[in-house]
């Protein structure tokens, strides 16, 4: 190898010894979990800026621009109300419009986050291959973008709830912790599907069906009391369905007499918190374990 004319203490070392002597690291090595979390924290500004940029970019070609943030959930609610409220006429539920829109908007938060998350690595390969940053920034900013969308639809929702004659109570404040728990849960799930979807897999094709099944199992469009007709184990399964839990928490907070599947409020909070913890931590660790693979190939 090249040597200098000077007396060099490195002469005679093998490449590996030379690297070790100067404290060089193996290229593309995965940092420890603690180090990774620290790096991610240092990139919080990037996560926020990227989430914001995505939100702006998503409507940049539309004439009405950011107005679609509010129009999309409204149109969605209108379509479902037409089918399930007017055509199928669900008399059993008091204030069906508010019941439906609450479920729809809460579910939509997870649905769109998961759909976008599946592609959060594969659609950003250019950025990943160009610059080095903790890759979890991308799925996390996807979640944040969807959270901002959620806040817009929450404004619409509160409008609908008020117009349909629900009283403002202190219970409304419970919506805040419920949404935070759901956001944590979403972040975990998004990290999970981001790694699964990063291998250009067939997940993108499968995800819409998974999500639709999930929606029908979360009592979004019809009364949750329908689940009581299922066999006992199936009802229990539905009761622990995280989406149903988050939707029930929101309905409990906003609506006076919405039918709930879970009688016990404590259980609702425990299950919701448990899911947020399990998904959040599990998803983060799972994503971190694949850190060195993103963008390769």
């Amino acid at each position: 190898m090249a040597t200098t004319a000077l007396v060099d203490p490195d002469t005679g070392l093998t490449q590996a010894q030379l690297a070790a002597r100067h404290g060089l690291r193996v290229a593309g090595e995965r940092p420890t979990l603690v180090e990774y979390s620290r790096q991610l924290w240092a990139y919080r500004h990037f996560i926020a800026a990227y989430a914001n940029a995505k939100l702006v970019a998503s409507y940049s070609n539309a004439k009405l621009g950011q107005l679609w943030q509010v129009l999309t959930p409204l149109t969605n609610a209108a379509v479902y109300y037409l089918i399930f409220g007017v055509v199928l006429d669900q008399q059993a539920i008091p204030n069906f419009i508010a019941y439906l829109t609450t479920g729809l908007f809460i579910f939509n938060f997870t649905q769109s986050a998961v759909l976008a998350g599946t592609q959060s690595i594969s659609s950003n390969l250019g950025l990943i291959r160009a610059l080095h940053f903790p890759r979890a920034s991308l799925p996390l900013s996807t979640t944040l973008t969807q959270f901002q969308q959620l806040l817009a639809s929450m404004v619409v929702l509160i409008g609908i709830v008020l117009v349909t004659g629900e009283p403002i109570t202190l219970k409304w404040l419970l919506l805040v912790p419920a949404l935070i728990l759901q956001a944590l849960f979403n972040a975990g799930v998004v990290l999970l599907v981001a790694r699964l979807g990063s291998k250009a897999s067939d997940l993108k094709q499968v995800m819409p069906f998974v999500l639709r099944t999930w929606m029908y199992g979360s009592g979004v469009l019809y009364s949750v009391t329908l689940f009581d007709r299922l066999p006992g184990w199936a009802t229990t399964l539905v009761q622990y369905n995280p989406m149903l839990v988050y939707i029930e928490l929101a309905r409990y907070a906003l609506l006076e007499d919405a039918p709930l599947l879970n009688e016990s409020l404590t259980q609702l909070w425990l299950v919701g918190g448990g899911w947020a913890l399990v998904a959040g931590i599990g998803g983060f660790i799972y994503f971190w374990r694949g850190e060195q693979e993103y963008g390769r190939g």
Binding site: H22, R25, V26, G28
Partner: peptide, 14 residues
């Protein structure tokens, strides 16, 4: 840059 794995040998970087 750490974007491709090395099958044999090693690359060390600062």
């Amino acid at each position: 840059a750490g974007l491709l794995p090395v099958n044999k040998g090693a690359i060390h970087t600062q």
